[in-house]
């Protein structure tokens, strides 16, 4: 009896702490959102707290008026979907192979492969050489220029690989004894057990691809840029000089940024509730028991 009371006291305090944490995180975001909807003058004068003042859709409406917006939105969706599905496939396949190690069930030269990926995790040649490669293989202005260069994420491989390694070996072994090959084990045994890690990696990929803007800027023609690149260009601060000082005053760097922040966070707000079930306790074990 005493223990239950203790539990509920802990629960209560814990819940309160969590609510406070949530508040500490959501208030600044609400502030930023209000800023994005407020007039430039109110923002500059620090009058906006958690509610828009002098409602102004300027930051959004300038972007919304442009027909390019819809096109860019579609390109972003296309890019994100392709990146997530292909990226998950390619990284999880590599992770499956590496999770087998260099032993009897694994591949020869395991350590070379690991070295190969670790080096790729840390070293990169920078923007100019990557640009040269992408354009030389004919990807300029192709949606694949936005997808292929970042498709293999070594961090994700390591994450998935370690998840695979932690799964109970019994099922896998049973499948091998039944005569299944690696492809079958990967697809039928490992993948269904790995939904939590796939959801995590998928979420990271969606957020990353949705918000990445530089490759759109350098690899795509203006009519084919993704949403992130379009917004960055469409709502950047103007030059301020005598001719357009008053016009420039209608822009506010913080408001402009705020609109971008909201759109940047949109996918996670939309997707996360659906991914929740993959983060629910016990699904892995449930799957094993089947």
């Amino acid at each position: 009896m005493r223990t239950t009371a203790k539990f509920s006291a802990f629960q209560l305090i814990n819940n309160l702490v969590m609510i406070m944490l949530a508040a500490v995180c959501i208030l600044p975001f609400l502030h930023v959102l209000s800023v994005s909807l407020s007039s430039s003058a109110a923002v500059s004068a620090n009058q906006v707290t958690f509610w828009p003042i002098g409602l102004n859709l300027g930051s959004y409406s300038k972007a919304l008026e442009d027909t390019q917006l819809l096109r860019s939105l579609w390109i972003s969706v296309e890019r994100t979907l392709l990146s997530v599905t292909l990226g998950l496939l390619v990284t999880s396949m590599a992770a499956y192979v590496l999770s087998k190690g260099g032993g009897r069930n694994g591949i020869a030269g395991y350590k070379w492969f690991v070295g190969f990926f670790i080096v790729a995790l840390l070293f990169n040649g920078g923007m100019i050489p990557t640009y040269l490669v992408v354009t030389k293989i004919g990807l300029y202005n192709s949606i694949w220029a936005l997808i292929l260069p970042t498709m293999v994420n070594v961090f994700n491989i390591i994450l998935i690989m370690n998840f695979f390694k932690a799964l109970p070996k019994e099922l896998e072994e049973a499948a091998f004894i039944d005569g299944a090959g690696h492809w079958k084990v990967y697809l039928r045994v490992m993948m269904p057990l790995s939904l939590p890690v796939m959801a995590t990696v998928g979420l990271f990929t969606v957020v990353g691809e949705w918000n990445e803007w530089l490759s759109g800027q350098i690899y795509m023609k203006p009519e084919n840029v993704p949403l992130s690149t379009f917004l960055k260009a469409a709502i950047s601060m103007p030059n301020i000089d005598i001719k357009n000082a008053e016009e420039a005053a209608k822009f506010n760097a913080v408001s402009l940024n705020s609109a971008q922040i909201f759109i940047g966070a949109l996918p996670i707000l939309l997707i996360y509730p659906f991914l929740q079930k993959f983060f629910a306790k016990g699904i892995v074990i449930g799957a094993v028991k089947e």
Partner: peptide
């Protein structure tokens, strides 16, 4: 079926070679 393993890791190796290692000459 361990040849299957090489096939499975191939796409990641190819992509990494093209988009990470080749540009590494920039170093």
């Amino acid at each position: 079926g361990s040849w299957g393993l090489y096939l499975m890791i191939l796409p990641a190796v190819v992509l990494t070679t093209i988009f990470v290692y080749v540009p590494m000459s920039g170093l």
